[in-house]
Every structure is written in structure tokens, then in C-alpha cells.
């Protein structure tokens, strides 16, 4: 039992961060039906920004740098939407274009970083990086706890933004029914742009929360691709809250699987679950099963 808890607790903690990563992807899909294959690379960019702010002379604590990361990536996301994404939204024929455009953008990010910083792994190690506390027999890493609390905080702020602000309501309205939102006088292009910015920024903050215990390379995004897409499908494509729950569940599955198999293959379990979900509940754990017959 204790052994089980020793895996469960860190699983929940990392799951919070996964939730954040996935919620950005879920928000973007929900609002504009675009699967952003560059999402994990925005995470990677955010990790480098966090590292630069920490190691590049500023000595800024990665958790304190989060607001700056959020703002930078909000603007970056909006710019990417304005420059690229808006041209491939809407038409039926554009599905292929969306896939290759976002893959291409992600690849460009990876290689620009590779050229600038090489593939040498970078680490962000604040003084408290290895500290932690025992609660009973269970060790709780300080940085992972902070990352989890940060995720909860951002989730709460996201909830307030989507439910209590005019722009947030407009985004929800557009994601539920863009035609009705148009009749309300909502500028769909603007809500798309903001939603893309916020979605990218959410994932970026998730990346910033990871840097204290995840080394950074230009290709670090691949480690999280499985996790992010599985979480989004698990929670139901397009649902932000679903993606959140999906993220936490995946953190738990990854971690608890280590009771039986090596940590190196934890993502195999995630993928098996992902395929299983597609088989039995393609609209996610919480969605209604709807299938073309």
C-alpha cells in the first residue's frame, strides 16, 4: 500500500503539469478545430526561455518567471495565429494544410533552437531543487509540489478567465457554436487569435513548471507528445476541463505503472490506454459515444 502511494502521489503531482500542457491543446482544438502539432514545441521554447531567465545572468527563479513566460507566449501565440494559422482555418479542404503547417512550424522552432543552443541538455537547478519533505513514508519533492500548486493556480485563473470575463465568455461561446457566437456580434477571428495565444501560453507555463526536474533539449517536446494527445483524447477532444482531468489521470497511470514495469516504458501504458479509449469511447471518458454507422 505504501509502495502504491509512493507512486500515486508523484503521479498526481506530475499529472497537474500534464493537465496544464494538455489544456492548452484542448482549448485550441475546442475553439478552432485545429490540432496544433507544434504545441509541444511551444512548451520546449518556454523551457528555454525559463532557462535563459534563470541561467542567463538574471538568476530569475523559474517559478517567479512564470508571469513573464505567460505574457511572452500569449503574444507569440497570437502572432503565430495572425501570421500563419488563420489562413488554414475554416475550409473543409484545410485539414491537411493544418497538419503540415503546424508540424512544419514545430520543426522550425526545434531547429532554430538547435542552431542557437546546440543539442546539449540544459538544466535549471534552483537551490531547493533536491529538497523535499516526508509525509509519513512518502517523499514529496519540493519542486514537483510547487509545479503542481502552480498548475492548480493557473487552472483556477483559466476558469475565472473563461467564466467571468467578456472575452472568456466569447471564447466559450465560439467554441460551443461559432455561428450563434457570430450572431452575438463576436469577432470570431479575434476570439480565435486570443484562444490560440492563451492555449499556447497555458502549455508554455506547463513547460516552465517542468524545467526544475526535466532537462531541456531542442527535442524535449517528443517526450510529451504522447502525454498531451492522450490526455486530450481521454478527456474528449475539444474539452478544456476534460483535457485537465485527462492530464491528471495520465500522470497517475504513468507513475503507478512503475509498480509493475520500468519507468522507461511508462508511456507505453499511456498509449495502450489511448488506443483503448479510441476503441471504446472515442469521444473521451466523459463524452457521449457518437459514431458514424
Amino acid at each position: 500500500m505504501v509502495e502504491f502511494l509512493q507512486f500515486l502521489v508523484p503521479g498526481i503531482l506530475i499529472g497537474g503539469v500534464y493537465a496544464l500542457l494538455a489544456s492548452g491543446l484542448g482549448l485550441i482544438f475546442g475553439v478552432m478545430r485545429v490540432v496544433n502539432f507544434a504545441q509541444a514545441d511551444f512548451m520546449m521554447l518556454a523551457m528555454y526561455l525559463s532557462w535563459a531567465l534563470f541561467a542567463g545572468g538574471f538568476g530569475l527563479d523559474p517559478f517567479l518567471a512564470v508571469p513573464a513566460v505567460f505574457v511572452v507566449f500569449l503574444l507569440l501565440g497570437m502572432a503565430v495565429h495572425w501570421l500563419f494559422i488563420r489562413f488554414v482555418i475554416g475550409q473543409r479542404e484545410n485539414h491537411d494544410a493544418q497538419v503540415i503547417l503546424t508540424i512544419g512550424l514545430g520543426l522550425i522552432f526545434q531547429n532554430l533552437i538547435l542552431i542557437r543552443y546546440s543539442s546539449e541538455p540544459r538544466v535549471v537547478a534552483p537551490a531547493y531543487a533536491n529538497e523535499g519533505d516526508f509525509i509519513g513514508d512518502i517523499f514529496i519533492s519540493r519542486v514537483r509540489l510547487y509545479a503542481f500548486l502552480l498548475s492548480l493556480l493557473v487552472a483556477a485563473l483559466l476558469f475565472l478567465f473563461l467564466n467571468r470575463t467578456g472575452t472568456g465568455r466569447a471564447i466559450r461561446a465560439a467554441s460551443e457554436n461559432w455561428e450563434a457566437a457570430t450572431y452575438m456580434g463576436i469577432d470570431i477571428d479575434r476570439t480565435n487569435r486570443i484562444a490560440f495565444g492563451v492555449g499556447v501560453a497555458l502549455t508554455a507555463v506547463g513547460g516552465a513548471a517542468l524545467v526544475t526536474f526535466q532537462s531541456i533539449t531542442p527535442f524535449v517536446g517528443f517526450r510529451f507528445v504522447v502525454v498531451m494527445f492522450a490526455a486530450v483524447v481521454l478527456g474528449g477532444l475539444g474539452s478544456v476541463s476534460g483535457a485537465f482531468v485527462g492530464g491528471v489521470l495520465i500522470g497517475i497511470i504513468q507513475s503507478v505503472s512503475q509498480v509493475w514495469t520500468s519507468a522507461a516504458v511508462k508511456n507505453v501504458w499511456v498509449f495502450a490506454l489511448f488506443l483503448l479509449i479510441l476503441y471504446v469511447r472515442p469521444n473521451g471518458l466523459f463524452g457521449k459515444v457518437q459514431r458514424a454507422i
Binding site: 503540415i100 503547417l101 512544419g104 520543426l107 522550425i108 526545434q110 531547429n111 532554430l112 542552431i115 531542442p218
Partner: peptide, 13 residues
């Protein structure tokens, strides 16, 4: 170092 990949990426975009 990433020149090859950049060619493919630019082509895709």
C-alpha cells in the same frame, strides 16, 4: 546543424 530539417520544415509551411 539543423539545416536539413529546416529545408523540410520550410517546405511544409
Amino acid at each position: 546543424p539543423g539545416a536539413q530539417e529546416l529545408v523540410y520544415a520550410a517546405a511544409l509551411v
